[in-house]
Design a protein around this nucleic acid. Structure first.
Lengths: 153, 153
DNA sequence: TTTTATCGATTACAAATGTAAACTATAAGT
DNA sequence: ACTTATAGTTTACATTTGTAATCGATAAAA
């Protein structure tokens, strides 16, 4: 539930995924996973773990000499937050199109499609006629030009 | 059409948006937009412009003393590529859920919903029964555990 | 109990990023 | 023709990121 306003880098995300895949992991287990995928040395992985702990993305729990690492936020929440940040760079008017593009290129199951259809059905309740542009002036074509005409599609 | 394998930072994205909002812009026009939104000095904006030109994201055309800047890739393509990169960090099995989440929190118009519904209808043609997990071993719960059972929801 | 294999912590260092001042060339004003 | 304002280029510098070696503590082995 806690939104992480923390910025996680690509490499750190790789580490997080290895943690989310288990409930508690040792650095050694993480290293085994990532050495295969990313050819990182163990020292590198330790650096990332340390940084993630410092950022508050990982919790630790002593277990003898070593630590057990666990994620302090859920993967789904993290994904949500990350996507939200991306969508902040996209005009609200364009959100629909963008999601259309996502659907087109994704592999989806029949169940997925059904759930999406239900979601859309629900969504009709708070749908609007016209999504207002939320961009700063000068950062998209939706704003009025000098003749009072909108450039929006 | 050209996929940019270029990495654009948050700040640079702000600049790009100001360029995409017009066809050709001077650095002064960009500065006016971004000084308001981001409180950047003109020198800062010039740095970003220079870096974007070097990265091949912006094209320039001499116009007297100054340049006219224009984007070398389309905004929609860029958004697509950026989102694709994010989705590479998400298990394919989870794409559907993730898109559901996006739809739920987005503001959509009736037209948007209609287009999404059409897209889903099309999508049924190549839907699968079960989306296969594409994660590296150890990076999601979809893979077999030692007892040969999948952990996937 | 002394050695060894590790674990985590500290330090290292280059490249990228955020932020900008200083410098240089030149179009425009006087 | 000379000055000035301004556009782009170069340089600057702290922070973050990618990638890792080294160091210090300690559990396990001998």
């Amino acid at each position: 539930m806690a939104q992480p306003d923390v910025r996680v880098t690509d490499s750190e995300w790789e580490v997080m995924r290895a943690v989310w895949a288990q409930d508690k992991v040792t650095s050694r287990e993480i290293a085994e996973v990532l050495q295969k995928k990313k050819q990182w040395g163990t020292a590198t992985i330790k650096t990332f773990l340390g940084r993630l702990v410092k950022k508050g993305m990982l919790k630790t729990e002593k277990d003898g000499k070593q630590f057990l690492y666990s994620a302090s936020i859920e993967e789904a929440d993290f994904i949500r937050t990350t996507l939200d940040e991306t969508f902040e760079n996209i005009c609200n008017k364009d959100t629909g199109n963008t999601i259309v593009g996502l659907i087109e290129k994704s592999m989806l199951s029949f169940d997925d499609i059904e759930r999406l259809q239900e979601t859309l059905e629900m969504k009709k309740k708070d749908a609007v006629d016209d999504v207002p542009c939320n961009c700063a002036p000068g950062q998209c074509r939706c704003h009025m030009n000098s003749h009072g005409n909108s450039n929006c599609k």
